[in-house]
Simulated assay, not measured.
Amino acid sequence: MSGLRLVIVGDELVAGTGDPKALGWVGRVAARTRPEGRFDVLTLAVPGETTTDLGARWDDEVARRLDPDADNRLVVGLGRADAAAGLSLARSRLNLANVLDVAEQRRLPTFVVGPPPGATADGERLAELSAAFADVATRRRVPYVDTYSPLAAHDQWLGDLAAGDGLLPSQAGYGLMAWLVLHTGWHPWLGLPEDGA
């Protein structure tokens, strides 16, 4: 093996849009991940992407970035676009299920990060969406990070959103998302010791 390669698909939250440090949660998590040997983190973000859109592109885009000599892994960062686009929960569930099933067929270990809270008007819908995504992942024994429930009433998260455009987190918000990822099975999924993050 020539190291670890993570390919991360998702929307603008995966890209860290709105973070003045340009790290987002992905950069912060990568900085706390210390495998032996080479470590590649390839981020493939499309702003405003629904799970339908993600399902149409991810396999081809990810396949072109895999290294046959590396430990290749897929991280799926789910955003809030399904709620904004009015997709049914059944459609969102099916879209994620299809991604996870194809990844399993490709023998590509997968880790899923759910959508965080956004505008309060979308709260109930996003809570349902996160729970639906969690159920799909759990049924497939794929690690799932619920970012919605811990952050929905979190003062620092809400303050970070309010200080910006109300939708995208800034430095503090992305730090909270990274903390949740690092403390929800990230290191065990990678076969690495916990780093005390």
Results as ranks from 00 to 15, higher is better:
Ala163Trp: 01
Pro116Tyr: 02
Asp135Cys: 12
Ala121Ser: 06
Pro188His: 13
Glu128Cys: 15
Asp11Ser: 14
Asp195Lys: 00
Gly24Leu: 05
Gly123Asp: 09
Thr147Met: 05
Ala132Pro: 06
Asp155Trp: 08
Leu192Ala: 04
Thr51Trp: 00
Val112Leu: 09
Pro109Arg: 10
Leu13Phe: 15
Leu161Gln: 12
Thr138Asp: 09
Leu129Ile: 13
Met177Ser: 03
Ala131Lys: 05
Asp40Cys: 07
Gly166Lys: 08
Pro169Gln: 05
Gly114Asn: 04
Leu96Arg: 01
Pro35Tyr: 10
Ala83Phe: 08
Leu89Thr: 11
Asp146Phe: 04
Val7Met: 02
Arg141Ala: 06
Thr50Asn: 07
Glu124Lys: 00
Val113Trp: 00
Asp82Met: 08
Val76Leu: 04
Arg91Gly: 00
Gly191Trp: 14
Arg140His: 14
Arg139Gln: 04
Trp25His: 06
Ala30His: 10
Gly164Asn: 01
Arg64Met: 10
His183Thr: 15
Arg64Ala: 12
Ala153Tyr: 11
Gly24Lys: 02
Glu194Ile: 03
Leu44Val: 10
Trp25Thr: 15
Ala131Ile: 11
Ala45Phe: 06
Thr184Ser: 15
Val142Glu: 13
Gly114Gln: 00
Leu190Glu: 01
Gly55Gln: 15
Ala152Gly: 11
Arg73Asp: 08
Arg65Pro: 07
Asp195Leu: 02
Met1Lys: 06
Asn98Ala: 09
Pro193Cys: 00
Gly3Asn: 06
Pro150Phe: 08
Leu74Val: 09
Asp11Val: 11
Arg65His: 11
Asp165Phe: 02
Asp40Lys: 09
Gln171Lys: 03
Ala162Phe: 09
Val145Asp: 12
Ser88His: 09
Tyr144Trp: 07
Ala178Pro: 07
Gly77Cys: 10
Val112Asn: 10
Glu36Pro: 06
Gly16Arg: 06
Ala84Arg: 15
Glu104Lys: 15
Thr51Met: 06
Arg140Ser: 08
Leu94Asp: 14
Val136Trp: 05
Leu4Ile: 11
Thr120Phe: 09
Ala121Thr: 10
Gly173Asn: 11
Ala15Asn: 04
Asp40His: 08
Pro116His: 02
Ala119Ile: 12
Trp25Lys: 05
Met177His: 01
His187Ala: 04
Arg32Trp: 01
Thr51Tyr: 03
Pro68Ile: 06
Glu36Phe: 09
Ala85His: 11
Asp165Pro: 02
Arg141Asp: 05
Leu176Thr: 07
Gly166Cys: 09
Lys21Gly: 11
Leu190Pro: 01
Leu94Ala: 15
Arg140Phe: 07
Asn72Arg: 00
Ala121Cys: 07
Val99Glu: 10
Pro68Asp: 00
Gln171Ala: 00
Val145Asn: 13
Gly164Pro: 05
Arg107Phe: 12
Ile8Ser: 12
